[in-house]
C-alpha cells in the first residue's frame, strides 16, 4: 500500500468542526504540507480506536487555499468500528496524523458526458467532481440519493450550485431513484462515477452490464462498510486452528480473527483486492457479501468470502427472542 511510505504521512491540525446533517460532521484540517488536490482523492487518518491506532480513509470534499485546508465529512455510523466515533470526538486545535491526499478514484477529464451518483455519505467523494465539471463547463448530471433529507450533507448548497444539473432522490419522501431508468437514459460513452451503499452500486453495476455499456466507463469507490443486511454479531470458527471468535456488529471478521491471534493476510480492507479471502466450510445463516472483488456468480456460490468487509447474518428474520447468531466455519490460508 502507498500508505506504507513514510513521506506521505504528516500532521494536521483540526481548525473547525460543525455538524452538517444528522450524524454527519464536517471537519476542517490544516495539513503540515499543503498541496493542491484533485477530485476523488482521500486522506488516510490515524484514528484512535480502543486505545489502538487504526487507519481510516475519508474523501477530501474540498481543499480551499490550494490545499492549505482539507475538508472531510464523517458520518457516525450506527455500527461504527470506532473510527467515526473518534472522528466525531475531535475538537478544534487537536492534531492528527494524516496522509497527503491519495488518489484511487480519478475523474477523467474529456468524457462527452458524465453522471455523478452519490448515495448518502458517498457525496463526499462526488461533490468535488461535480464542482470541477461545473467549472470546466462539462455536460454532467449530479444525482444524490438518501433515505431522508435530514441525512443529506450539503443538500441545499449542491442544489444551488448545480441548478438544473442536480437532482435529489429521497426515499422517505417517495422519490426513490429508479436505477434502471437512470442507466437506460445514459448516452453511450458517458462515464458514470458513483459512491454509496453497496446495494445502490450493485444495482447500477447490474443494469450497466445488462445494457452492455463499456464497463470501464463505470467508476466507483467503495468504503466497504455497507451491506445488504444490517451488521449483526456472528460467530466464526476455524477448526484446523481450534479458533472460535465472536464478531461484534461494530468490527469486521478480519479484525476479530486478528484479535484472536490468527495470522491473517489482507491489504485494502474495503473489499477490493481479494487478499483476505477465506474458504467457507460451513454456514448456519447466510453471507452478506459486501465486497466488489467477487462476481455475482461467485457470491451466489458462498464458497469463499472477503473477510475484511463481508459478514454472516442469521437466516431467519430476527425475532426479539430466541434469535441465534449465524455461525461460519472457515479455513484460512
Amino acid at each position: 500500500m502507498i500508505t506504507s511510505r513514510d513521506d506521505v504521512w504528516q500532521s494536521a491540525e483540526v481548525t473547525a468542526v460543525d455538524d452538517v446533517a444528522d450524524r454527519i460532521r464536517r471537519i476542517v484540517l490544516q495539513p503540515e504540507r499543503p498541496e493542491p488536490t484533485r477530485p476523488g482523492e482521500h486522506i488516510d487518518v490515524l484514528a484512535t480506536v480502543n486505545g489502538e491506532q487504526q487507519v481510516r480513509s475519508y474523501s477530501v470534499v474540498e481543499a480551499p487555499d490550494n490545499g492549505g485546508h482539507l475538508v472531510i465529512t464523517v458520518f457516525r455510523t450506527p455500527d461504527s468500528r470506532g473510527g467515526s466515533e473518534f472522528m466525531h470526538s475531535l475538537e478544534q486545535g487537536q492534531v492528527l496524523r494524516v496522509t497527503k491526499p491519495l488518489q484511487n478514484f480519478p475523474l477523467r477529464v474529456g468524457a462527452p458526458s458524465y453522471v455523478l451518483l452519490a448515495g448518502g455519505i458517498g457525496i463526499t467523494a462526488i461533490a468535488g467532481m461535480a464542482a470541477l465539471l461545473r467549472r470546466l463547463g462539462a455536460d454532467y448530471r449530479l444525482v444524490y440519493v438518501a433515505r431522508s433529507r435530514a441525512a443529506m450533507a450539503y443538500l441545499d448548497d449542491l442544489a444551488a450550485l448545480h441548478g438544473h444539473r442536480f437532482e435529489a432522490h429521497i426515499d422517505d419522501e417517495g422519490g426513490s431513484l429508479d436505477v434502471p431508468a437512470l442507466v437506460a437514459g445514459v448516452p453511450a460513452h458517458t462515464e458514470l462515477y458513483m459512491c454509496g451503499p453497496i446495494r445502490l452500486m450493485d444495482a447500477v453495476r447490474r443494469t450497466w452490464a445488462d445494457r452492455g455499456l463499456d464497463r470501464t466507463n463505470l467508476r466507483y469507490e467503495t468504503f466497504g462498510n455497507s451491506g445488504w443486511f444490517d451488521a449483526e454479531p456472528f460467530v466464526v470458527r476455524i477448526p484446523r486452528l481450534g479458533v472460535e471468535a465472536a464478531v461484534g456488529s461494530g468490527e469486521s471478521m478480519l479484525e476479530a480473527l486478528e484479535r484472536e491471534g490468527v495470522d491473517m493476510m489482507s491489504d485494502c480492507r474495503k473489499g477490493e483486492c481479494g487478499l483476505c479471502q477465506v474458504k467457507v466450510l460451513g454456514l448456519a445463516g447466510r453471507i452478506d457479501h459486501r465486497d466488489v472483488f467477487y462476481s455475482d456468480r461467485q457470491k451466489a456460490s458462498d464458497s469463499t468470502m472477503c473477510c475484511c468487509v463481508s459478514r454472516a447474518v442469521a437466516a431467519a428474520p430476527p425475532t426479539s427472542s430466541g434469535k441465534r447468531p449465524a455461525v461460519l466455519t472457515i479455513e484460512v490460508p
Partner: peptide
C-alpha cells in the same frame, strides 16, 4: 484470476 476488475 478474477472475474471482476479492481475499481482502483
Amino acid at each position: 484470476a478474477q472475474e471482476t476488475l479492481n475499481p482502483s
